[in-house]
Design a protein around this nucleic acid. Structure first.
Lengths: 342, 342
DNA sequence: CGCCAGGCCTTAATCGATTAACTTACCTGT
DNA sequence: ACAGGTAAGTTAATCGATTAAGGCCTGGCG
């Protein structure tokens, strides 16, 4: 078994030709005769040279065929979140077809500089928790596509969150209702809490704020308002965080008539809490979710929600990145009335 | 805004020192005076040099801090499989702590040569479907750790599948029972089918065959046998494939008394089918699963299964890879009798 | 005073390719 | 016979670092 690393040079020497010829045999068949090419490839096969060293190619060509998927949360969290993991499916399908590789980059890491030199581009799923990282992404000199948030100057894949929330809130809220909102990542806190009048986080780029805008617009149209103490901040779309907010909301006095949730995970937890407290949905409480995950289509009563395709977002973002399409894309969504909003 | 890519050379020129000094400022603080180092770093900050180019470092140092996770199946499948995605959690937790990056490599791709030059090592989860790939992995000159299968000369992380299956089969099977087995990846077919006497796949390296051995040993100990037409091959641990096998098995004549399943996903589907056919479990049918996924702990009756920690496997395999530990590790598992085997 | 050791930096080779520019040799048409 | 064209290779610069080896200066010690 050969222990030594073979290089172009070795092959070239063995055949008595220049390294350029070997390189051309692999990369530019038109630069040498078919016979010579055949001979070179055969020799490589024979001596066990598996083609040009990729590390060297990356440096020289400035291309690695690696795409970084920058995740807002830890990988740990991401793989268990239905929307996020479905998104990965979409991305990977396209990358696979284009023979690209997928690097998972968890946004909680310090700096994008660690990988920017060797990846071909970035797909950013969700606004990174780390502020610095988001700013660095905006400045990177390689293609970047953002999903579910905006970075000026970068193309983004999104649905119209404001409109979607307006639609579902309009369907859910009745005049005179007490309305509560279970929101996602509204302020800068690692715990579930009411937002009161805490300063909102990243108002421009965050979809949570687009959603909040949509909810509030619908509520105001019916002549009501929602105060900060009826709006909950949930740090991530996780059942246990959601449960806490759900309980607090349900135990508020007066009890909300309608609760608008920024994800199905939250809404499912809320529904569960409500039912176990003996509340009837939608008679006593109306619940609206968001996302349209599978589990939300199996609840009794059927969850009202905004259905969007996370997989499609994944596909489109990968395609946009690879094709260099710089246009922002707004995907369609669908309002499912279900049975939880009457 | 500077458009040009800055290099060591640029910084060196600007400061009137050699490139070696700049490099040392980043990598070997003991090679220059503290004052000079400070000056260099400050200058880098000022002119916007973000540190040595990683692509060049990879080539020169032969280290990239990237670990490839080689998946037996497509990424699409992997992220939705509970065991596989939990495994990723474990791996990522350790890599994150060590500041390593995670590259997902789907085993259905052609050759490991595409990445071997720039990754630091491989964690292989499950026997790759692609034969060539498995052989290449055995020969790679970088660290490789295998999980849930064996590659001669490579350290592996496993549970004792043979023993685990022997234990659960011994608990499940009664003397005189008709026993059927719903197996995973036993033969080379993309469809669910009985194996009859088809040649088994990769007998040495596959855990499915260790499991089969365990089942059969227990069955034989009770004086029975299981023929090939009572053993099903299921190409992947997917509900719809599983359902088909489950139906076939349940409609066999005579109907099996005990069915041993090589994954919980399969067992869950089987349980569902059986119940919907009006069978009582375990009175009419006894079912054994494997893996101990969350969903299997929520069934009524409670699924009998072998509980193993996929996350722990992930952590250990990453640690073994990074520490260079070459020893095979056998992890503990636990037999949960549950209620489906009486 | 002279010598050696250490600290601090520079020189230059190297990692393993790619590719623009150049050289040869061979044709081709007039 | 000769200019001009093209096919097939070669030469050498380059990508952006790392690092062994070596040079120079300073200070301590006998």
């Amino acid at each position: 078994m050969k222990k030594v690393k073979l290089t172009l040079k070795d092959v070239a020497q063995k055949l008595g030709v220049s390294t350029a010829t070997i390189s051309n045999a692999f990369n530019r068949p038109d630069q040498l005769s078919a016979a010579r090419r055949e001979q070179v490839l055969e020799a490589c096969q024979r001596i066990g040279y598996h083609g040009p060293n990729k590390a060297a190619q990356i440096l020289r060509k400035g291309e690695s065929r690696i795409v970084a998927l920058v995740l807002a949360d830890s990988i740990r969290y991401t793989v268990s979140d239905p929307m996020a993991s479905t998104f990965i499916k979409g991305v990977s399908t396209v990358l696979q077809a284009e023979q690209k590789h997928l690097l998972l980059y968890a946004g909680d890491s310090e700096s994008i500089q660690e990988v920017v030199d060797f990846v071909d581009g970035f797909i950013c799923y969700g606004l990174p928790r780390n502020r610095v990282l988001a700013e660095e992404l905006a400045r990177v000199s390689k293609p970047v596509v953002t999903v579910d948030f905006n970075l000026e100057t970068r193309p983004s894949i999104n649905i119209d969150n404001e409109d979607a929330c307006y639609q579902i809130a309009r369907a859910a809220v009745r005049e005179g209702d007490h309305v509560a909102i279970l929101g996602l990542r509204l302020i800068d806190s690692p715990n579930t809490c009411r937002i009161y009048d805490s300063p909102l986080l990243d108002t421009d780029s965050s979809i949570s704020h687009r959603r909040l805008d949509g909810y509030l617009r619908a509520v105001e149209e019916k002549g009501m308002t929602v105060d900060g103490d009826w709006i909950w901040h949930i740090p991530e779309s996780d059942s246990s965080f959601a449960r806490q907010a759900a309980k607090e909301a349900l135990n508020s006095n007066p009890r909300p008539d309608t609760i608008l949730c920024m994800s199905d995970i939250i809404a499912l937890e809320l529904l569960q809490c409500a039912l176990s407290m003996g509340l009837r949905v939608p008679q006593d409480l109306r619940i609206a979710g968001f996302d349209g995950i599978d589990e939300a289509s199996r609840t009794r009563p059927l969850m009202a929600t905004i259905c969007q395709s996370s997989e499609r977002k994944g596909e489109l973002s990968a395609k946009a990145l690879l094709s260099g399409n710089k246009e922002a894309q707004l995907l369609p969504y669908e309002l499912r009335r279900g049975e939880t909003i009457g």
